[in-house]
Amino acid sequence: MNATTNSMQESPEKPAASTSQARSKSAVQIQNLSFSYGSTETLKNITLHLDRNAVTAFIGPSGCGKSTLLRCINRMNDEIIGTRITAGKIIVEDIDIHDPSVDVVKLRRDVGMVFQKSNPFPRSIFENVAFGLRMRGIRNKAVIEQSVEESLRAAALWDEVKDRLNESALGLSGGQQQRLCIARTIAVKPLVVLMDEPCSALDPIATAKVEELIWSLKKDYTFVVVTHNMHQASRVSEKTAFFYMGEMIEFGETTKMFTNPAVKRTEDYISGRFG
């Protein structure tokens, strides 16, 4: 296991259609990434390899850049005016996602995202889950129905909502809404699921359910979870990256980081001395 902070791994640039080739162990490779918002540099020279079918947690105090980095991975920052990548690159499934030939819409189909605040559409539960499929032009009713059921089952929501699929999603509780958003994201079978503080608005019971869900889904997906909650990071993740002031301070096995961090500042943060 390559618990590295600065190792430079030369990854060959390959065209998009390379599914038949042996895939690298890392689903996402972030190489020397620097990112600016206006004139402030919010990410400084980040290098990070995220393992396939594993859960990686990003932790750090507010404003350390962990959410920004997460949003870089599916280029959600494109929509924000004044932001730009100043150096480095992100490679997802062996292609540089900022390559001009990359269609950002197709990228986001493979790199899904769950937001801090649950944001179901003001439609029925069924339509929320079916949305991504419909956007891909899938019309076949049977396919959609099957996929919706699978996704809701995977998100452990099926038993709770199966009798009211046609009711508005806005009538669900906060925890259910967030699980619905996860179901909606995995319904389109992405490779990577980015989660931006998915449990910050949920009560402990709902949080526990979402965490269980992440753990049970990781065999099929690569998860990246941004969290403020140290316990959550230690519970759900296999690897953890600690950010501070736009720099990545430490990256490694979660168990090691929480018991014996290599850097003093990490220890200070984890033990609650600041942040």
């Binding site: 937001f115 949305f131 956007m135 958003c181």
Partner: peptide, 15 residues
């Protein structure tokens, strides 16, 4: 319309 709708839709790969 809440910006979250647009964000969610785009994150789901809608153009």
């Amino acid at each position: 319309v809440p910006a979250a709708y647009a964000e969610a839709s785009e994150a789901l790969g809608a153009s």
